[in-house]
Design a protein around this nucleic acid. Sequence first.
RNA 1: GCCUGGGUGGCGGAACAGGUAGACGCAAGGGACUUAAAAUCCCUCGGAGCUUAGCUCUGUACGAGUUCGAUUCUCGUCCCAGGCACCA
Length: 860
Amino acid sequence: MEERYTPAEIESKWQKLWEDSKTYKVSDDPKKEKFYLLEMFPYPSGKIHIGHVRNYTIGDVVARYKHMKGFNVLHPMGWDAFGMPAENAAIANRTHPAIWTYNNIDTMRRQLKQMGFSYDWDREIATCRPEYYRWEQWLFLKMYENGMAYRKESYVNWCDPCQTVLANEQVEAGMCWRCGKPVRQKKLAQWFFRITDYADDLLVHCDLLPGWPDMVVAMQKNWIGKSAGAEIHFNVENSSEQIVVFTTRQDTVFGATFMCLAPEHPMVQKLSLGTSQEHLVNDFIERISMQDRSSKGIETYEKEGVFTGAWCINPLSGTRMPIYTANFALMGYGTGAVMSVPAHDQRDFDFAKKYGLEIVLVVKPNADLDVATMSEAYPGDGIMVNSGNFNGMQNELALESIADYLEVHRLGKRTVSFRLRDWGISRQRYWGAPIPMIHCDACGIVPVPEKELPVVLPEDADLLVGGLSPLPTLDYFARTTCPKCGSHSARRETDTMDTFVESSWYFQRYCSPDYHDGMFDHKSVDYWMPVDQYIGGVEHAILHLLYSRYYTRVLRDMGLISYKEPFTRLLTQGMVCKETVHCPTHGYLFPEEATEGKDRRCKRCHHSVTIGRVEKMSKSKKNVVDPHILLEKYGADTTRLFCLFASPPERSLEWNEQGVEGSFRFLNRVWRLCAAWMPFVRSAAAFDGAMDDLAPELRGLYKKIHQTIFKVTSDIEDRFHFNTAISAVMELVNMLYGFSVDERSPAITGLFRLAIESVILLLSPVTPHIADEIWSELGNTSIYAASWPIYRPEALLKDMLTVVVQINGKLRSKFSVAADIDDAAIEQIALSDERIKKVIDGKPIKKIVVVQKKLVNIVI
RNA sequence: GCCUGGGUGGCGGAACAGGUAGACGCAAGGGACUUAAAAUCCCUCGGAGCUUAGCUCUGUACGAGUUCGAUUCUCGUCCCAGGCACCA
C-alpha cells in the first residue's frame, strides 16, 4: 500500500471501475426488499453548485448504506430540463436553449460522476426529450377528457413592452424585472388543472405523512388554507341581483355596515351603470388593474375604494349597506365579495374610518368597549349585542346559531373556502412541453389524437426579439389540420406547460425509463413506488411537493397506480452558507479577491474589507465555493466528508475552508493508519472470538469497535445525523493511534484487522473511493457489495460504571463500581465518600435519590 | 400580523428517554521531531477567583415556574432564520 494518500489517482481509478463494471446498475427483483432513494433532480443550469453536492451526498450515503444492509436500492438521476433560464441564457449568450441545455447536462453529468455518486446512469432521464414529455401530453389528454384539465379566462401579470406574462416572482415592486416598466393585470385564456378538487384530500393526508418534517406539513396546510364559514346572500336594493359573500364570522353579520366587491367582480360595472358614480368606478378599475397585486406589491398600496352608487340590504339586520369596490377585496378568494364589519375587522375598520362609514359593535368582551372610543377593531370573542334575537349569546355559539338560521331561512349556508386555487399551467414560453391541443374556427378546442403524440417541440427554432416564444410564428408547428373537421386553418396551442408538471411525475418514470407503451411499466412502478426516502431543498416544500401529491392522486383515480402519496419519508436539507467579503470600492468580493489573514484587504485597492454575516451562498454576494476547485484540491471524498461533518443535514451548513482541511487531514490519518498496519493485517483474519478471549488491555479497543458500529448505525438509520456518526469513527481512529505497530502481537493484529475493516466499512458510504481502495488492499472485492458491519450487543455492556454523586443537584464527587452493583450499595459508597462527608458536614439528610447505576443525589 | 424552526465556548457543532454541559472538528497557545520550514505527533483550551498537585463560584438568549435535579418540560419576554399574508 502506498504511503501517501493520493485522492486524484484513487478517485478516477475507482470511478472508471464502477462505470465499466456497472456497479450501481439495478433491476427489479421481487425476491429482494426494495428501497427507493430519490434526490430532487437538478435544473441543468451549467455547473453543479455546492447545494447539489450537499443534497446528493446525503442521498448517496443513505443509498449506499441501505444497499449494504441488503436492500435492492433504486437511486436514479436525471434533469429537470425545461424552463426559462435556458431562454435567458440563449438570449445572453446567443445560443439556443436546446444546445445550452444539453451542453449543461453533459457538464453536470461529468461532475456528478466525479463526486462518485452511486447512480444507475442507465436510468437517466431529461424532461425536455420527446420520449419523456409525450407521456405528459398523453396524461393531459386524459385529464382533459375527465375535466381535470380545463381552459378559462384568468388574470395574469402582463408586461406590454415585453408582450409577455410574468410569474409573481418576476414582478419587482410592480415593475417588470427585465424592462423595468409597469406590469398590469390582463385577462387571458389559459389552461388549468383542477387541483382544488383534491384540496380537502391533500389537506387531510397531511396528517398521514409521519415521515415528513413538521415544518413542511405545516407549510402545505397553510398553503391549502382551509377555512370554515358561511355564504350569505345580500339582496341589492331595487334590483333582482344578489351578492354572495363568504365569511368566517357570520356571528358578526349584524355588524356588517357596507359591502366591498373586488374590482374584477362581474357585478361592479353592472351596479354602477347609469349612476353618477359610473365613471369614478371605471377609472378606479382601470387604475387598480395597473397595480401589481402579487404578494410583494400588495403591502405597498393603501386600502382604497369607490362607492358604486348601489345599495344592498343586510338580510339579518335589514340595514341598507352601501356597496363599494375596494382594492383589498380579492376576486380569487371566496366569492370576491366581502361583508365589511368594521367593529371586528381591522381592515374594515380602517376603511370605514377613511370613508366615514357606520361602525356597529356586535360582540362585546366587557362593558368598557364602546364604538365611540374604539381605536381599532375588536376581533376577539365576547357576548352578542345589537344582534336581535341573538343578543346575550356567547359569540362562539352564535356562530353556529346564525349559520343554522341562515340555512333555515335560505339566506345562506355553511361552506368552506380554500386559499388554494386551481393550478394554471399555461406558459407563453418556448422552452417547455407543448400542450397537445388544437384550436379550430369551426370545432373550437380539439385535442390532438393520441396516435399523433408526441407533439414535438421544434428544437431548432430561435427566440424572437425580447425573448418571446417563436412557436406562434412558426407555421410548420402552429398550422395544422383539425382532427375533427379536417379544416386546414386550425392552429396548435402554442403555450407550453409549466415545468412543475414534468417534475410532478418523474419519480415514476425512473422505474421504467425506457418503457414505450405508456407513462411507466406497471410492474416496475408497483415494485419500486412509493419513494421510501426523498431528499431535497426546503425551497420546494410547497409547490413541487404539493403538485406531485396532486398528480399522484390524479394517476391513482385513473387507475394507473395504486398508492396515494408518492413520498413516504422526506428530508429537507438546509442551505449552504458562507461569510461575505465586502470592499468599500469594489463591492462584494470573491474570497480569493481579498488577502488572507487577520487584516484582510482588497487585492485591487488595498482597502480593508468588511467580513459580513454568514449568508446563503449566491453568485450576487460572491460568497460561493465552486465544487470543481474542491475536487481538484482535495478530491470527492474530502468534499463529501466535510459536507456531512459540518452540520446535521436539515440545518444550514456554514462553509469553512479550514474545516475542509480538517476533513482532508482526517482521511490522511486514516490512510496512514491503514498503511502502517497493512503489512501485518493483510494476511491476518479479523478477530472473531469473544471478548473474554482477549487480553484485558485489548478489551477496551474491542468495545470501542462495537460501540462505534452501534453508534454509526443508529445515527444513520434513525436520524441521518452523519456528523455524529463521523465523530464516532474519528474517536475510534484516535484510539487506534494509541497503539504502536512496533508493539504488535498476533492478538493485536487480528483485532486491528477487525478495527480497520470496521472503520473502512463505516466510512464507505461517506467516502467510497478511499474505502474501496483500502478494502481492496485488504484483499477484498467491491465494498459496495459488502455487508454492513454488525455490532455484538454483549460488547456494549459495561462491566464498570461511573456513578455521579450530587448534593442538592450539584456534582460533588464520582466513583467507579462494578456494573452488577445494587442501589443500596451505591448509596452506601456515596455516603462514605470523603468529599461528600465533607460537604454534608453533619447536616441532616432530607432525602436521597438514587438513579439506577448512574447517579446519587443527596438532599440536605 | 399568523405559522414553523432556532438561540450552548473564539467558531461549526455534541449531549437521542429530565440525571457528569461542551463529544468530534476548526481556530488559538505551548512542546517534540527538523539545520529550518511544511507535514506529523503530544499537551492546554467556557468565564471568574483562590491559600493553584487542586479547590470554589459561575455558566446553555432573558425572567419566572415544575422537580431531589432543567440545555432538555411549562408560562412569559427578547432576538435570529424560513414560510404565509389586505384570505374576508
